[in-house]
C-alpha cells in the first residue's frame, strides 16, 4: 500500500506500525519527531499506530542551525 513519506509516495507493507517503519528505515526513535496526518504524534503512540493507505507522514530530525 502507498503512503506519503516526507512528501514522497512510498510503498510499505500492510499492517505495519509506525515504530516498525521507523526501525525498517534504520532510525533511532529517540532522535526524531513525527507528524502523522498533520498532527504531532508523541512517541508513546508510535507502536499503537498502524499505518493505513494514504497516510501522510513527516519524519524530521535536528540539523545544524543558528
Amino acid at each position: 500500500m502507498e503512503i506519503s513519506l516526507n512528501g514522497k509516495k512510498t510503498d510499505i507493507d500492510e499492517g505495519l506500525s509506525l515504530i516498525e517503519l521507523i526501525e525498517q528505515k534504520g532510525l533511532e526513535p529517540e532522535r526524531i519527531v513525527v507528524e502523522y496526518n498533520h498532527q504531532v504524534l508523541s512517541k508513546e503512540h508510535w507502536d499503537k499506530t498502524i499505518l493505513k493507505e494514504g497516510d501522510n507522514l513527516e519524519v524530521l530530525r535536528f540539523v545544524g542551525g543558528g
Binding site: 512528501g7 528505515k25 532522535r31 513527516e58 524530521l60 530530525r61 535536528f62 540539523v63 545544524g64 543558528g66
Partner: peptide, 19 residues
Amino acid sequence: VTVALRRIDFDSEDENMLN
C-alpha cells in the same frame, strides 16, 4: 545551543546533530 528541524532524507546517509 541552537539547532534546526528538517525532513529526513531517506535516500542519503545523514547524521543526527544531537549526537
